[in-house]
Write a protein that binds this DNA or RNA. Structure first.
Length: 424
RNA sequence: GGAAAGAUGGCGGAGUGGUCGAACGCGGCGGUCUUGAAAACCGUUGACCUUCACGGGUCCGGGGGUUCGAAUCCCUCUCUUUCCGCCA
C-alpha cells in the first residue's frame, strides 16, 4: 500500500510512476483518493470537536455530583444526548469514508521506481547482463523430464498418484541432489551474513495481507478454510511477517534473513510446455532471502542481493542472464524487480530461477513495519526479497546442461553435499 | 476433543465506574559520581489521527452494548496459557 502522505506530497511523481505500470485512469484514482482524504479529515475534526464537548460536560457532571448538586448535574445531561446523536452520525460517515479511502488505497499497486523501463509484457523486459556460455549438446540431448525417467530420479507419475499433477516425487540421487542444493544455498546465505530462519509453512490471513498476497492474489494460494490458514507460496510471507507490527532499531539495519521452505502455488490457468516436467510445479523447494533496510540504502541492498544470487549461479556453472522487469511485467507489490533466468540447453529456453525485488515501503506500510530514524521520527522501513534460489528449474537446467553419454555430471560445488559426482 | 484461567505501554505487572494514558519494577535515553566502566543516585521515556502552532481526539486483544462518564459493568468474537485426553 502506498503512503497517503507521500501521494499527497508527490502527486505528480506518483502518477508518472504508476503510469509506468500501465495503471488505468491513474489521475482519476489519485484525485479520488486525495478528495476522500480531505473529506475524512473534515469529518474527523467535526467528530473530535463533538467528543471534546461531551468529555468536558461529563467532567463537569462528575464534579457537580461530588459537590452534591444533583439537579444541576441532571440538567446537563440533556445536552450530551444531543451531542451523542450528532457524533454518532458523524462517526458513521467517517467510518464509511475511511473504508472507501482504504479500499482505494489498497487496490493501488506499488509505484515502480522511476528507472523501471516502460513496457506491456515480458517481451519488453530488458536484459541487463548475461553470464556463462550455453553448452552445445547436439540434437540428441534429452529434456530433463526424460532424463528424470531414464535415471529414475524424479517420478511425476508417482506424484500424480499420491497427490496430483505438479507434485513430483524425488527419488534416490534426485532426492539427494535436491537436499544438496538446499544445503548449498543455505550455507552460502549464512556465509553471506543472512540469519537462517525456518518458518511455518502455513500463515494466517493477517500475514497474507502484510506481504500483499491478500487480497490481490487470493486464488494463487492453497487455503485451509477450516482453520483460516493459507499454505505459503514463498518463505517471503512468514519471514517478512516476523516484523509485522514492529518497530525495529535503526542500528539493526540491514536485517537479513534466509530461509528454506516448500512453496505451494495453485498456478491456475497454466498449461502446455510451461508446465512440462519441473518447469512449473504446485509444490517446490526454495531458499529465500529477505532484507529489511533503511530507505536510504535499500537500492544498494538490492545490488548486494543480486550479487549473491549471481554468485550461486556462477558456482553451479549455469549460463544465465539478468532481466530488469518492465512496468507491465513487474508485480503488484514491487517497485523494482530483477529476474534471473538460466539457460536450459535441451529445452532451448530460459527458465526463471530467481526474482529479486525492492518493495520500498509498500509491504512495510501494510505491515506497520517501522523504525525510529536519526531525526527521532517514526518511518516505514524498506523490505526486499529474492529467491536464492528456487530449486526445480535449477535442477532442470543442471540435468539438461550437464548430460553426457556417461551420465549427468554434478557441479564441483555440490559434490561435498552429494557424496557422488555423476548420476548414471 | 473435555475443563479452567487469562488478554493492560518494549517487557513484567498493578488497577473493578469519574483528575487513568494508566502505579510500581525492568529495560531504553540523559545526567551526577569515576581515569574508564560497573554500582548507586537524579531526571526522562507509548503509539496513532488532526493542527503552522496552541490545542483537540483515539487507543488498556477485536466488535457491540449499558452510563452524563468504562481499562473497570454486560454481550460477543478471536487468541493465549494451564490441566486432562490423543500424538511426531
Amino acid at each position: 500500500m502506498l503512503q497517503l502522505q507521500y501521494i499527497k506530497e508527490h502527486t505528480q511523481e506518483i502518477i508518472e510512476r504508476l503510469q509506468i505500470k500501465n495503471v488505468p485512469n491513474v489521475e482519476e484514482r489519485i484525485a479520488e483518493i486525495i478528495q476522500l482524504d480531505e473529506q475524512r479529515r473534515s469529518l474527523q475534526k467535526k467528530g473530535d470537536d463533538l467528543k471534546a464537548e461531551q468529555n468536558a460536560i461529563a467532567k463537569e457532571i462528575g464534579m457537580l455530583f461530588k459537590q452534591g448538586k444533583q439537579e444541576e448535574a441532571n440538567a446537563k445531561k440533556a445536552r450530551t444526548a444531543e451531542l451523542k446523536g450528532e457524533e454518532k452520525s458523524v462517526s458513521e460517515q467517517l467510518a464509511q469514508t475511511e473504508q472507501e479511502l482504504n479500499a482505494k488505497l489498497i487496490s493501488l499497486p506499488n509505484a515502480p521506481h522511476i528507472s523501471v523501463p516502460r513496457g506491456k509484457s515480458e517481451a519488453d523486459n530488458v536484459v541487463v547482463a548475461e553470464y556463462g556460455t550455453k553448452p552445445d549438446l547436439g540434437s540428441d540431448a534429452l529434456p530433463h523430464w526424460e532424463l528424470c525417467a531414464k535415471y529414475d530420479i524424479v517420478d511425476f507419475e508417482l506424484g500424480n498418484k499420491i497427490t496430483g499433477a505438479g507434485f513430483p516425487v524425488y527419488k534416490g540421487k534426485g532426492a539427494r541432489l535436491q537436499r544438496a542444493l538446499i544445503n548449498f544455498f543455505l550455507d552460502s546465505a549464512a556465509e553471506a551474513g543472512f540469519t537462517e530462519i525456518q518458518p511455518p509453512l502455513m500463515v494466517n490471513e493477517a500475514s497474507g495481507l502484510g506481504t500483499g498476497q491478500l487480497p490481490d492474489k487470493e486464488g494463487q494460494m492453497y487455503a485451509i478454510p477450516l482453520d483460516g490458514y493459507y499454505m505459503i507460496p514463498t518463505a517471503e510471507v512468514p519471514i517478512t511477517n516476523i516484523y509485522r507490527n514492529t518497530i525495529v532499531n535503526a542500528d539493526q539495519f540491514p536485517i537479513r534473513h534466509a530461509g528454506y521452505s516448500e512453496c505451494f502455488r495453485r498456478e491456475a490457468g497454466s498449461y502446455g510446455k510451461d508446465v512440462r516436467g519441473l518447469n512449473r510445479l504446485h509444490e517446490f523447494s526454495k531458499v529465500e532471502i529477505v532484507v529489511i533496510e533503511h530507505p536510504d540504502r535499500s537500492y544498494e541492498q538490492l545490488e548486494t542481493m543480486k550479487k549473491h544470487v549471481g554468485g550461486l549461479l556462477d558456482k553451479l556453472g549455469l549460463p544465465y542472464h539478468i532481466l530488469k522487469l518492465c512496468g507491465g511485467d513487474i508485480s503488484f507489490t514491487s517497485a523494482m524487480t530483477f529476474d534471473f533466468e538460466v539457460w536450459s540447453a535441451a529445452q532451448q529456453r530460459w527458465l526463471e530461477v530467481s526474482s529479486v525485488s525492492n518493495f520500498e515501503t509498500f509491504q512495510a506500510n501494510r505491515m506497520k513495519l517501522r523504525f525510529k530514524d536519526s531525526d527521532g521520527k517514526m518511518k516505514l522501513a524498506h523490505t526486499l526479497n529474492g529467491s536464492a534460489l528456487a530449486l526445480p528449474r535449477i535442477m532442470a537446467a543442471l540435468l539438461e546442461n550437464n548430460q553426457t553419454p556417461d551420465g549427468i555430471v554434478m557441479p564441483e560445488v555440490l559434490r561435498p553435499y552429494l557424496g557422488f559426482d555423476i548420476i548414471k
